[in-house]
């Protein structure tokens, strides 16, 4: 079957099984590898993308269900919030191995887009779905607060 999806602002035609999770279509068919596989059951958040601005586990959304939405991956995320978050991530030297960070950044950008002054509790709630085994949670939390401060200024 053929499906047209909107990925990073571009209309893309995919000739695949509509049941394929968006994660694998993005990685294997479209060839963008910033979106990571970690668990396949929405337990780790490594595959987080934005679907119409909402942080979404791409391992749980089929290509068929993604039709008609606007999908943004780490490669396509832009704008003031994203740039600020990415800048702060770099300044705080957040990543260790870095594998989960695409998902962490996208989850943080979604949070900051919806809540300009997140509290620790807001951050915990928004970020609890994104696992980091190296354990960069401290710096992620600090990074979100710092990005919020800069965006307000």
């Amino acid at each position: 079957m053929t499906f047209r999806i909107n990925l990073n602002g571009k209309e893309t035609t995919l000739d695949i099984d509509g049941d394929m999770p968006l994660l694998w279509a993005i990685r294997d068919i479209i060839g963008l590898t910033g979106t990571k596989y970690g668990c396949g059951i929405a337990q780790c958040g490594a595959c987080t993308v934005h679907v119409d601005g909402e942080p979404t586990r791409s391992c749980q959304l089929t290509v068929e269900d993604a039709v008609g939405t606007k999908i943004t991956t780490i490669e396509g995320v832009n704008g003031k919030v994203a740039e600020t978050a990415q800048t702060v991530w770099a300044e705080l030297d957040v990543p260790q191995c870095g594998y989960c960070q695409s998902g962490q950044v996208l989850a943080a950008v979604a949070l900051l887009s919806q809540n300009t002054k997140p509290t620790d509790e807001n951050i915990d709630e928004a970020m609890a779905g994104n696992l980091c085994r190296c354990a960069t949670y401290h710096r992620i939390r600090a990074g979100i607060h710092e990005a919020a401060r800069r965006l307000e200024a």
Partner: peptide
């Protein structure tokens, strides 16, 4: 690898 990590 910082920049590459944060930009995928």
């Amino acid at each position: 690898d910082l920049h590459d990590i944060t930009t995928g």
